[in-house]
Design a protein around this nucleic acid. Structure first.
Lengths: 223, 223
DNA sequence: CGGGCCTTTGACGCACTTCAATCTAAGTGG
DNA sequence: CCACTTAGATTGAAGTGCGTCAAAGGCCCG
């Protein structure tokens, strides 16, 4: 990833709730998140918003634009974010002439897709409480994978959560309260935090295989 | 695509409702569909099935295995299918040394992802009737793109449809009857057929942009 | 003719929505 | 420092889409 490091410069700070790319755009840059939480979303004709992915530090927002010229969805920040822009041409060049990096980027795309599949399952088959629990487990695992799980705080509003789960804010509130009353999560100020991961994972029947993470290193042997 | 043509040999015919690849497998071949309809799916702990993608002629079933060694979902036929196997190593080789083909395969993956996003929107925001109408519009458009839309017949059972839409077979039946009573679709034997595409598309608020198809050729000029 | 899949239909219950009101915390300006 | 504002969280009551359970009706094929 040496070559990628050369590209990362000029980090930009964006406020919460700001659009980065809009549906229909043909953006010049690919964006990489360094801090904060962003999302992919679409607006519905009735004004509702559907969030189809949460993007956390280490995620590329829009690798697709190197291949698909027009965005079929929008991307925006949920919390304040720090990001870097990478010229789309540079990504194209990497894809075509550096097969190892191309392979890594392809891996990232495929994991995105696997997450989408699991969200689709969640949306179709799990009731809102298990769906929300499952989301929290996934986010914890993904934050853990980039070393940001301690402490794990989710500073999302209930409306943002609701748009992600495909439910109403009112119901998000009730489900959240239910998970809290069962001592799986708690509120730290306005952020959600997990206080009993084991119980949450059991409740959500969470299996992280779909994230295709490298197996955790067992460092108990080489101290 | 000359190079791909060399690879296509030994088409295999599979009966309906047969697994092609199971979750957890580490398959040796990538599969390309020539005829029939297959699907990606996951089984739930309670025995329910969630269908996360419909695969039609021209679709690769499992391009991912060239990069992600373990399948996080299963693939099976819904109707009888004709498919060809392509050794995974061959795909890997194409990805690494033939950037134009690699680009085409990457395009295919990104469109898969765009479809998944739209399904997620459908599942979260659209009621079952509009969701089903939207699915029919998508399938018609995809079949049309590979020249198989005339006549357009969907030989899926209501249970298969229900697993795709995340609803129960009973409700699928009612929704189907409702679309029929509104003269948008009809049954041709046991297959579903569209009798009023315009009305169906308007009802579903269908916009095909997410399929990233090349714009239809206007051949009225060069006769 | 019979058996097995699908499809179709009905009654009832629950998860989630809708509408609406209240409450709280964090500004903002005087 | 305190009115005033405003976004978000919380709570209640009533309505609806969809699920569940159960039974009956078509269609294909042996």
């Amino acid at each position: 990833m040496h070559r990628l490091n050369q590209i990362i410069r000029d980090p930009v700070t964006l406020p919460a709730r700001q659009d980065i790319i809009r549906q229909g755009d043909d953006p010049e840059n690919v964006h990489l998140i360094l801090e904060g939480i962003a999302c992919r979303f679409k607006m519905m004709p009735d004004g509702g918003r559907s969030i189809m992915a949460l993007l956390i530090p280490g995620d590329f927002c829009d690798l697709d634009v190197a291949i698909l010229p027009v965005m079929d969805h929008s991307i925006g920040t949920l919390t304040a974010c720090v990001m870097v822009d990478i010229p789309r041409k540079q990504i194209k060049e990497l894809l075509e002439h550096h097969s190892r990096i191309a392979r890594t980027l392809r891996w990232a795309t495929l994991v995105d897709e696997a997450v989408l599949r699991e969200w689709l399952v969640s949306m179709g088959q799990r009731r809102a409480d298990k769906q929300m629990a499952h989301l929290f487990c996934e986010l914890f695992t993904r934050f853990q994978a980039v070393g940001l799980a301690e402490p794990f705080l989710l500073p999302l509003t209930q409306e943002q959560l609701a748009d992600t789960l495909g439910i109403t804010p009112v119901h998000a509130q009730r489900v959240l309260a239910s998970l809290r009353s069962r001592n799986m999560i708690a509120l730290e100020g306005r952020a959600i935090t997990i206080i009993d991961l084991d119980r949450l994972m059991a409740f959500a029947e969470f299996n992280p295989d779909y994230l295709h993470l490298p197996p955790p290193v067992d460092d108990s042997e080489d101290v």
